[in-house]
Design a protein around this nucleic acid. Structure first.
Length: 316
DNA sequence: CCCATTTGACCTGA
DNA sequence: TCAGGTCAAATGGG
């Protein structure tokens, strides 16, 4: 995984990537505008959330483009064993799978609990003061006691996993913080058509703008939870001046004080240092259908303080 | 009866 | 070896 292995076809990819980033610029401008004028936001958090999701998707698509023609990117990590009967190897190979092929593969199961643990994958984390209904249909499939944590972690998968091969999962865990927060970690993106029932439901939000937003990409799986939020969330507020843009470097995206999108794109410096993209952090399990979502090596952290309530998580 | 949840078993990666 | 992640049988509710 040396930098010398960067693909020859990069210029073409770079163009595409830049197109994606340009779209991202538009989205960022939109987001900036929304955050600057919260009173104009019709749906409050939802609009910001949707825009953020689009931006994250744009970055993932960009990463996908950059990775698509790279033999290194496309190589499944070799230190992993391959058991084609494993249900989770279905993950690895599903990118071209139709629903039918998924159905074909799925019945081939090994013993109960036989699976591959994700070594690393794209992660999108929300931290909320209360539980949320994010608008997707989730089905709980497990919960575990986590050491050094007071509360159990709850595991959910998309309801349409088997119907449509949707690989989205999420983990919900109550933090030990005071007051406790709910950390929802999303793995992979929904590829199903009808999972989303609608916008996230704000069931109890005294102030839809009592929100702070932070999300970050990381090359590896370590989630930096203690990043400074771009604006305070403790009280009713509007977004602060300090927050203005999405900053990107080799392995991190965070909301910070970039003044222009050019500064952002300059900081990206395509080609990215391949090492940071293709080593342990790369996870092609996340390669989904082209153009939909393909996050290879990123961790997104998204933090909010909105008051929500979730239908699918009842008690902790 | 169907579907979602619970929960113990089981597997993998570190 | 163990913590974390997933599976699937058992169970319960509508």
């Amino acid at each position: 995984m040396e930098s010398s292995s960067w693909p020859e076809s990069l210029p073409g990819n770079r163009t595409k990537a830049m197109q994606e980033l340009t779209q991202g610029q538009v989205l960022m401008n939109k987001l900036q505008e929304m955050l600057g004028q919260p009173e104009k936001i019709e749906f409050g958090y939802n609009s910001v959330d949707d825009t953020l999701v689009q931006i994250v998707g744009m970055f993932n698509k960009t990463l996908s483009i950059l990775s698509s023609n790279s033999p290194n990117f496309n190589r499944i990590p070799q230190n992993r064993t391959h058991d084609t009967n494993s249900p989770n190897n279905w993950d690895d190979q599903r990118s071209e799978n139709s629903i039918e092929s998924v159905k074909t593969v799925m019945p081939i199961k090994t013993k109960r609990g036989c699976h591959k643990r994700r070594k690393s994958s794209s992660i999108f984390t929300k931290v909320t003061s209360t539980l949320i209904d994010d608008g997707y249909a989730w089905r709980k499939y497990g919960e575990k006691v986590i050491i050094n944590s007071k509360y159990q972690r709850h595991y959910y998968r998309c309801t349409h996993k088997f119907e449509q091969g949707c690989q989205a999962t999420k983990q919900v865990q109550k933090t030990d913080d005071e007051p406790p927060m709910y950390r929802t970690t999303y793995h992979r993106h929904h590829t199903c058509k009808n999972s989303q029932r609608g916008h996230p439901i704000i069931l109890d939000s005294p102030n839809s703008w009592d929100s702070s937003v932070l999300f970050s990409f990381e090359t590896n799986t370590i989630i930096n939870r203690k990043q400074v939020r771009p604006f305070s969330s403790s009280t009713k507020h509007k977004p602060e001046e300090g927050f203005s843009c999405l900053s990107v470097d080799y392995n991190k995206v965070s909301l910070s004080n970039y003044n222009t999108w050019d500064q952002v794109t300059q900081s990206i410096q395509i080609p990215l240092e391949p090492k940071s993209m293709m080593s342990s952090g790369l996870d092609h399990e996340d390669m989904v259908s082209p153009g939909v979502y393909s996050s290879t090596c990123s961790t997104h952290q998204y933090e909010t303080k909105d008051v929500f309530r979730s239908n699918d998580i009842s008690d902790f």
